[in-house]
């Protein structure tokens, strides 16, 4: 059972990672664009238990750290996604008003995306990564939040279905 869950989840995340690197990154969206991989991770975490969310955050963060376009040290994305995935799941777990309502899920994922990017920047600054200008950073963060609000509703049904497939949880969204 556990192996099946790991297998399905790992395959889904790998496919989204390849899609992000090979397709989404090639399209120049205005204002920073979006990351379907980050959206998938945060949605998956919001639909899972805190323990599973932390594990998923670790795996997803590790994959993002392996991305050739990542400038930070290995483990940087991992740390941030472990914390954020656990937090988003901890806040929504057991509260069906949040987990079952698509609107609250979209808002939660958008807010989490903003926090993830801001945390990445701040910790990156502490780790010695050169940051871009303030205006550029603000544009990227706000732009990605808006893109996330647009893209998340499109991905939500598919992610919820895949989550059900992996965990047999029969979530009703």
């Amino acid at each position: 059972m556990l192996l099946r869950r790991f297998g399905i989840t790992g395959t889904i995340f790998l496919l989204f990672f390849v899609a992000q690197e090979a397709v989404v990154n090639q399209l120049s969206f205005p204002a920073g664009g979006f990351s379907i991989f980050l959206i998938l991770t945060l949605l998956w975490a919001a639909l899972s238990t805190p323990e599973v969310a932390a594990g998923v955050g670790f795996g997803a963060g590790f994959l993002l750290d392996l991305s050739p376009s990542t400038s930070g040290p290995l483990g940087h994305w991992t740390l941030i996604l472990v914390l954020m995935s656990y937090a988003i799941s901890f806040l929504s777990y057991g509260d069906e008003n949040k987990r079952g309502n698509p609107l609250s899920l979209i808002l939660m994922v958008t807010l989490a995306q903003v926090i993830v990017l801001a945390s990445y920047l701040v910790t990156g600054f502490l780790l010695g990564i050169t940051a871009t200008s303030f205006a550029q950073t603000l544009t990227t963060i706000i732009g990605s939040a808006l893109w996330t609000m647009v893209v998340t509703p499109l991905l939500l049904p598919a992610v919820a279905w895949l989550h059900d497939l992996a965990f047999d949880s029969r979530m009703r969204i």
């Binding site: 323990e51 932390a54 955050g57 040290p73 290995l74 483990g75 472990v82």
Partner: peptide, 22 residues
């Protein structure tokens, strides 16, 4: 408690990876 322990292990692993990379 198990969940928190897992979280701590994962955070420590991440910090370990960062240290190794740096």
């Amino acid at each position: 408690n198990r969940g928190r322990l897992l979280l701590v292990i994962l955070i420590v692993s991440s910090l370990f990876l960062i240290t190794l990379d740096l």
